[in-house]
Design a protein around this nucleic acid. Structure first.
Lengths: 149, 149
DNA sequence: TGTAACCCTACTAATTCTATATACGTAAAA
DNA sequence: TTTTACGTATATAGAATTAGTAGGGTTACA
């Protein structure tokens, strides 16, 4: 499962991406709009900034903006950043690889081979979908809901 | 990520499935063969028994056997049993559904729609693969490794 | 009836998650 | 140049989860 932190990060990024690029967005504005505890959100945004996704401006009329474009930021990157490995077992993880303690032979482990397939399928989706896609999806869903009425 | 408990459960089940059906398998044997703490394994096997996957025989010459056939037991069932939801967010879970606290409209949530796709892809694999498949895979991997030499 | 096996309850140490508190640094406006 | 409105940094803390341990109890076979 995703941690709340990762979910907050994605919600916050989506919110920032939806606003105009001109004015920096306040932490407190995001916090209220998305129901995220403010102090917790501060830490999250800072992490996203360090990772190069966001940029910030200090002082009065400061706040956060995207550093990369909404088309560049994919969900897999964010989730990996905040929650760590996406794979179900570390022995099939690319970025967070660790050998299994018990498993004597990784190359012939059946479980590993299955979990590896799951990882491929999961990351294929998560790294393909960007913030921009997320916003587009939302619009599409809202439209199809409206026409159904 | 899978918990160690779930990994232990799968390893233990695979081990039992590989043995002949005639003699019950001892907890201590599995524990040693798969490097699983014995007392922890006891608890896991008990849970698998309660779920109807294993059956046990008490007393001298007792032990564990499969109750269902190796073709019947799929990995998704075991993982869900031990670790809970497979989905990344509870709002797309079938068995462990819970509404999102922050999300005001589930039907139009872009993140939900992406995570839902991930869930479909993941469960499709995990519920298709059975213990019997796991063993077959292992054999196949061992063979292809041998021919490579 | 002894003993080798599984069964059961409760406890705990360590870690992670979800924040909160406090103090500090910085930039723009009055 | 002082004030005010922001972000930055570090420390801490309660709750939940994970990964076991301890210590018997119960059953059934020889």
């Amino acid at each position: 499962m995703l941690s709340k932190k990762a979910k907050y990060a994605l919600k916050a990024l989506e919110y920032i991406a939806k606003q105009s690029d001109i004015n920096p967005i306040l932490i407190s504005e995001i916090s209220e709009a998305q129901n995220i505890p403010k102090k917790f959100l501060e830490a999250i945004l800072l992490e996203l900034k360090r990772a190069g996704i966001l940029k910030s401006k200090k002082g009065k009329f400061g706040g956060y903006n995207l550093q990369q474009s909404a088309e560049e930021v994919n969900l897999g990157f964010v989730i990996r950043l905040i929650d760590g490995p996406i794979s179900l077992i570390a022995c099939v993880s690319d970025k967070y690889y660790e050998p299994c303690a018990e498993c004597e032979n990784e190359a012939t482990c059946g479980l590993r081979s299955v979990v590896s397939e799951v990882r491929e399928a999961t990351t294929a989706i998560l790294t393909k979908v960007t913030l921009a896609d997320l916003i587009k999806r939302e619009l599409r869903l809202k439209k199809s809901k409206a026409t159904k009425k």
